[in-house]
Design a protein around this nucleic acid. Sequence first.
DNA 1: GTCTATACGAAGATAGAC
DNA 2: GTCTATCTTCGTATAGAC
Lengths: 186, 186
Amino acid sequence: MIRSGAQLFRERGVSGTSFADVLEHSGAPRGSVYHHFPGGKDEFAIEVTRYAGGLIGGALRGALEGDDPVAAVRSFADMWIGVLESGEYAAGCPVVAVAVDAAPGPGTRAAAGDAFAAWESDLAVVLVRRGVGEDRARSLATLVLSGIEGAIVLCRAQGSAEPLRRVAGELATVVGAAVAGSRPPA
Amino acid sequence: MIRSGAQLFRERGVSGTSFADVLEHSGAPRGSVYHHFPGGKDEFAIEVTRYAGGLIGGALRGALEGDDPVAAVRSFADMWIGVLESGEYAAGCPVVAVAVDAAPGPGTRAAAGDAFAAWESDLAVVLVRRGVGEDRARSLATLVLSGIEGAIVLCRAQGSAEPLRRVAGELATVVGAAVAGSRPPA
DNA sequence: GTCTATACGAAGATAGAC
DNA sequence: GTCTATCTTCGTATAGAC
């Protein structure tokens, strides 16, 4: 159910996704909705957000494994380009969907904020490890995250992966310059 | 009604906003909904998107009037920071809300794409005027737009204007370097 | 733990009077 | 052009049996 919820949130948003949709998509038994999620849709949305945040965070950490922030930015962006192109630009980021859709309670919004903060932190850690100062690293991490998430929205609206391609190129340049500039002169 | 719709879309998303909400917020007569919008919610959402796109586009063009892209980026971001802070981070960009919420038909999504394209073009034109090459200008304009829109989402999720402040600073640096680097050496 | 049935309300949309 | 009334569908949530 949670996996299906994440997929449907990505396509239709939170308010646009009903339990009936989730049950149909997941094939889950209908009687178990309020058994597993006694808090109703709010609780369900929070769980979906946590799950999606962890999943995407895992992908991001995987991309960051080589301690090469430039390659990680490109790899993370390429992952999203693949998602967008294979799904005809119908599906975006579930965490953004939660953040933009205020229908559920404030807990859901906070869960989205936590996910973003975790991703940002993962990025900043690697930048610091590559010699970038802490403040700049945090600032750059926010730019990368905002840029990619914003570009995903643009891609969906325009039915094209071009915005994300352009943003990925610019971000790679900026991050590359920051890493190079912070390294001790050879 | 359209003005109210834009405000409510910003706060609750498209699926989360009903005609009853719009009527209550705007004080418009109830009988006139399907008189003015025979196409129902789809048509209404498209009109709201066009209106909001024009409004925000006007603000952006105003910020760009001095032909100073760096100041324009800061000014545009500051406008959003003001909106976020004065509204307790409840309201974001209505065009993003439309792009993320697939509930209405494809026409709405296209209207959002048109708005983004127009803003991007406004930005790129000024960059070109300042000597930036056409491809780079387009690429930078996409980065600025994606970065700011993405940061607005992060701000809402985290209940803070910090992401947008950081992104605005980074974008100002990048745009400043591009403009400076493209000017003929003095 | 899952099922059926259903209460309750809300939303989109339409009809016809004024 | 606006109003009231209403139809229909859908969505959340609950109750109680298996």
